[in-house]
């Protein structure tokens, strides 16, 4: 409710509104893409392969004669769904573990932070590759691998925020007013942490997207013939010189997603930062 209030108190700038619309469209595509797609995205029709745009196939067909538009729309489910799942898991894990460390302080804090450090020393993509190697391929394992290679960044950030916030006078005020420890955390610490983490996450969506597509591109994530944007780019590689648009479409979708959420993150940051700083010293 706090976030909502903060959101209502702040009028979003037009750029942010545009990005929100785009994000909504992408979300719609993620939820309903496979049902909205005009053709079965896996239906092979070799006699129709590598056709240019036409009325029947607005974006043409790929090397197996599958409808590119349908594959893009259906692929959104996995490409965006994986990112949504990663985000939800990374935020839950990161904020949960990080807040615990920040609230507890002392040895608990130190122990958790050493574990984080271990994860942070290895570049995320290498770490994700390592986890896929351990877990095996497939979309669920790719999600797990990306989560495992990213949660520590979020935990560190959340911990730093909590450690600063718990020293704020208004947290002390809530405490002397008789608010319980858990309630104080839920009402005064978590909303501010989540607001900041949402900003971080929305800036990071592009990065995760590239991870998922990158792993799929390497053939470790979604397996053909299932549609996914990274897989589509990989498929189109063979015909890159004759049909470059086949790489272009999924590439554009990835770019649109990345840009949308970067803009959303920037807007969120601009909107929330002054509000968070208004009442207290920066942690």
């Amino acid at each position: 409710m706090t976030l909502l209030q903060a959101g209502m108190a702040l009028r979003p700038p037009p750029g942010l509104r545009l990005a929100s619309v785009s994000a909504l469209l992408l979300a719609g595509l993620m939820l309903f893409g496979p049902w909205l797609a005009p053709y079965d995205p896996t239906e092979v029709a070799l006699d129709l392969k590598l056709m240019g745009p036409s009325l029947a196939h607005p974006l043409g067909t790929d090397h197996l004669g599958r409808d590119v538009l349908s594959r893009l729309m259906a692929g959104a489910q996995v490409s965006l769904g994986a990112v949504a799942a990663i985000l939800a898991l990374v935020l839950t894990l990161g904020v949960g573990i990080g807040s615990l460390a920040g609230m507890a302080g002392g040895r608990t804090d130190a122990a958790i932070m050493r574990v984080c450090d271990a994860f942070l020393t290895i570049p995320t993509f290498i770490l994700a590759l390592f986890f896929v190697g351990v877990l095996g391929t497939g979309p669920a394992n790719v999600v797990t691998a990306v989560v495992l290679s990213h949660w520590a960044w979020y935990a560190r950030m959340a911990r730093a925020l909590v450690a600063g916030l718990k020293r704020q006078d208004y947290v002390l005020a809530a405490r002397v007013a008789g608010t319980g420890r858990l309630m104080t955390v839920v009402r005064h610490i978590l909303p501010a942490v989540l607001a900041q983490m949402a900003i971080l996450a929305s800036l990071d969506i592009g990065h995760m997207m590239l991870h998922v597509s990158g792993l799929s591109f390497l053939g470790l994530g979604v397996t053909p013939p299932d549609p996914e944007w990274g897989v589509m780019i990989n498929d189109a590689r063979a015909v890159l010189w004759t049909q470059p648009v086949l790489v272009l479409w999924p590439g554009l979708m990835i770019m649109l997603t990345v840009m949308t959420f970067n803009r959303l993150g920037d807007g969120l940051r601009d909107a929330l930062d002054p509000a968070l700083q208004a009442g207290g010293k920066a942690p």
């Binding site: 706090t2 209030q5 903060a6 704020q168 006078d169 208004y170 002390l172 005020a173 809530a174 009402r187 005064h188 909303p191 501010a192 509000a275 968070l276 700083q277 208004a278 009442g279 207290g280 010293k281």
Partner: peptide, 10 residues
């Protein structure tokens, strides 16, 4: 310090 004893978002 009353200025800082209120949650700025509430």
């Amino acid at each position: 310090n009353p200025r800082e004893a209120f949650n700025p978002l509430l």
